[in-house]
Structure formats: C-alpha cells, structure tokens
Amino acid sequence: MEIKENGQKKLLLSILGVAILVIAVIGISFAIYQTTFDQATANSIKTGTITVSYTEPSNAIDIEDAMPMSEKTALETLKTSNKTFDFTVTTKASGELTVPYEISITKVSGSSTLDEQYVRVYLEKNNGPVTLIGENAVQKEGLYSNLISNLKDSTKRQDGTKLLYSTSDTFDSENSTAINTTYKLIMWLDENYQMDNETQTKTYKAKVNVDSAVTPIAQ
C-alpha cells in the first residue's frame, strides 16, 4: 500500500516537473521582449454644477374691485399700494456656461372668468421695464391675449401657458457667483374694458412659472 502511494507521488512530481519545464520553455520562447506601460496620471473629466431657483411671495396679486386703468395710472397706483407680484430667479453654474430661463404665466382654469383680452401685464427686471414676448408695434403692449403661448424650451407646458420673458445668465471659469434677478409683475384691468351692465364679479387668476432647460454646449 505504502509502496503504491510512493509510486503515485513520484508520478505526480514527474508530471509537475515536466509541466514546469514546458512552461519555462514556452515562456522563454514567447516573451523575449514584452512590456506594458501605464499612463502615470489618469485622464479626468469632472462635470460642473448648475442651480436654478425661483422664489415667489406667499401672497399673490389680489386686487379686489378692480377698475379699468391706463398703464400710467396702474403702475403708479399698484406699485404704491404694493399690489405687485415680486419674485426672484437665482442661477448659478460652475465653469463656463450660459443658463437660459423663461418666465411664463398660466391662467388658473375654472376660476378665471374675465376675458384675457382685458388683462394687462407689466414686468420689471431689476427695477427696469422689460419688453414682453409677443409684443409688437401694432399690438397693444402688455395685453395678456397678445402673449404667445408656445414656450421655446419648456414645451412640456401645454396648458395655455403664455411666455412673458426669456433671458439667460452667463458664467465663466473665473466667476461662478450666483446671479439674483428680481422681477416685479403687475396685472390690471385694461382701460378699454366696458363695465356696462355687469351684475357679476369677474376674476382672472394666473400663476407665474420659471423654466430653465440647459442644453448641451453647441457653440
């Protein structure tokens, strides 16, 4: 029995020896010169970050017993009485990037009974008036019904939302400080509105939206 085991051990050792020899010979034959270089420092790509925020007051515009007004009167009266909707858009990006955004307005369906052709809209950006999208020389400025409804970037808003203003903030590699932009929205009843035979109060309700869609850099 012991003799048999010894024989098997010798056989295994012999096979192992031959295998090592074969590997050594083949190894020498096929690796005369073979080398590998690794790049010392890895190539690294780190993406930047984008932040967009929209801050709105808890209390929206609420004008009771509204009367038709001219633009001049409306701006003076409503600003003085703080019946404006002041909101802030903040953007921030690291690195070189342009962050576009759109400000739009959406009628609250169901509870708005006033025809939008009598609703006037006025928007200020950092205390200066802005030209609303959709205005032109023929159409009356700031008339809600003249605003365009097809938003450029935020096409997901299909509920009659109208675009007020479109702009962008640009950041470069040396300046990534957040940009705060304040806006003031004023709405009033157009001076052409006829109050004749009105037996029932009419209202118009709308919400302001801010949408930003940053697309891949293309130019």
Binding site: I45, T47, G48, S94, E96, S173, P216, I217
Partner: peptide, 12 residues
C-alpha cells in the same frame, strides 16, 4: 499633459 477637466458640461 494628461486630460484634467473640471466644470465640464455635455457638449455636441
């Protein structure tokens, strides 16, 4: 001389 990019964004 390796690629080392920060604040990168998707691009065409």
């Amino acid at each position: 001389n390796n690629i080392s990019l920060t604040n990168e964004y998707p691009m065409t």
